[in-house]
Amino acid sequence: MPYRFLEKVATADVAFEAWGSTIEEMFVEAAEATLNVMVADLSAISRREKITLVLENDSIEMLLFDFLGELVYLKDAQRLLLLVENISVKKDVGGYELAVTLAGEKINPKRHPLNVDVKGVTLHLFEVAKTASGWQATVVLDI
């Protein structure tokens, strides 16, 4: 299982761990976990609209924070539920650069089994770590 929700970390909210053998895989899983809080069945999201994003940050941790925040922003501003289509994370002198193509569609309560809204990504226990088998992130979402 590439992500799992944590039971006892966030009583009023939702916490998860996401893993990947590469940074990119971990980002994809963290995005899916975030969407899965709002939509019970991610296969119900049709990948009909595409959005490309480039984000930069000094640390890989804050790059993930910005990326998940962007998904929450696009959900509110454009009502889009988005999953990752293509992703690359590069390290350069200034820090890390994320280039990602997202695909999805506007929220449709008739077709999307909706759960609870994610209002924000928090820095509470927020962590990105390199493990023996790849990368792991711990995230708490505000509900």
């Binding site: 709002m38 939509v39 959900k75 509110d76 009502r79 539920l81 929220i107 309560p109 999307h112 909706l114 759960n115 609870v116 809204d117």
Partner: peptide
């Protein structure tokens, strides 16, 4: 019907 509720309501 008149007060939007739920995920991404607007």
């Amino acid at each position: 019907a008149r007060i939007p509720t739920g995920v991404g309501c607007h």
